[in-house]
């Protein structure tokens, strides 16, 4: 999948009409372009170079490039067993009981911090984990023997081992979690680590757990585009063991899940604040 502004010649905004796929630059309607393989592509306004690289004596300082993505993210994976694998439906005004939640918890249930824009892997939104933070994403299990998880994670440093990913029961106390390894130890050219693996399917609901293993102040991890699907086998091979920090975070996140799995009032018993109501007559 090509995400970065690559593969196209420098293409400045004022001459862009031919650089777009369907819809075209002149159309204000949303449209999504693809590269030759059909993958989501993201190029426009200037070059595929970084602004610093693009600046020359004869050219104006390049402030930014413009990209185009599907604003609904990765819905092609319609059989995703995660409720919101791409984070496009997490956050906003409905910030309680979201499909993703964070540890450590400030009070009780908290959605992760969200990032919006081009730094996400797909779509418009993704999650950001601060130092030593972990998140869980809710899903359901399968009758098949295994579960395959694919996830894209951008660590702060070019080292995929700075992140732990696992699949396990959402709420079971001290039940096993199955680690998912990154495909390679180093990120790709865009800084993304792809985690992919098959683990035994549990006997209950499945959750995905992601931990930022670094506690350095600036160590922000971006998490996006997770797909959990049934697998016809239970996986095999050696995987690195989950870190004690990750396991501790999983138990914290499960505690939050157990609190969630209780009856709750409906939305409208907490009506929108009066400031939002009746704006238009």
């Amino acid at each position: 999948m090509s995400r970065q502004a690559s593969g196209l010649l420098p293409c400045f905004a004022l001459a862009l009409a031919g650089c777009w796929g369907e819809g075209g630059y002149a159309s204000p309607a949303p449209s999504w372009s693809q590269d030759a393989s059909g993958a989501e592509t993201s190029v426009d306004a200037a070059s595929d170079s970084t602004p610093a690289e693009a600046a020359t004596d004869s050219a104006p300082q390049l402030k930014r490039t413009v990209l185009l993505r599907d604003p609904f993210g990765n819905y092609r994976e319609g059989d995703n067993l995660l409720i919101d694998g791409d984070f496009e439906w997490t956050g906003g005004l409905m910030s309680s009981q979201t499909p993703w939640w964070v540890s450590p918890m400030l009070i009780s249930w908290s959605a992760p911090d969200m990032l919006v824009g081009a730094r996400c892997h797909s779509g418009m939104k993704c999650a950001v984990l601060g130092p030593s933070q972990s998140i869980a994403g809710a899903g359901v299990g399968t009758r098949e023997p295994g579960l395959q998880l694919s996830a894209w994670i951008h660590p702060a440093l070019p080292d995929c081992s700075l992140v732990s990913v696992s699949v396990g029961l959402c709420a079971g106390i001290m039940s096993a979690v199955h680690p998912i390894d990154s495909v390679s130890s180093a990120p790709d050219a865009d800084g993304w680590c792809r985690f992919d693996g098959v683990v035994p399917a549990g006997t209950s609901r499945a959750c995905v757990f992601v931990s930022n293993e670094s506690d350095a102040d600036e160590a922000r991890v971006i998490v996006d585009d997770l797909v959990l699907r049934p697998a016809s086998h239970a996986g095999s091979g050696l995987r690195r063991l989950p870190s004690p920090r990750h396991l501790a975070a999983v138990e914290q996140l499960r505690k939050g899940a157990r609190e969630l799995f209780q009856p709750r009032p409906p939305a409208w018993t907490s009506p929108p604040p009066v400031e939002l109501r009746s704006k238009v007559r």
Partner: peptide, 12 residues
């Protein structure tokens, strides 16, 4: 709503 158009410096 988002159109999908965004910039490298996070404008959408």
């Amino acid at each position: 709503f988002p159109t999908g158009r965004m910039t490298s410096d996070d404008w959408i």
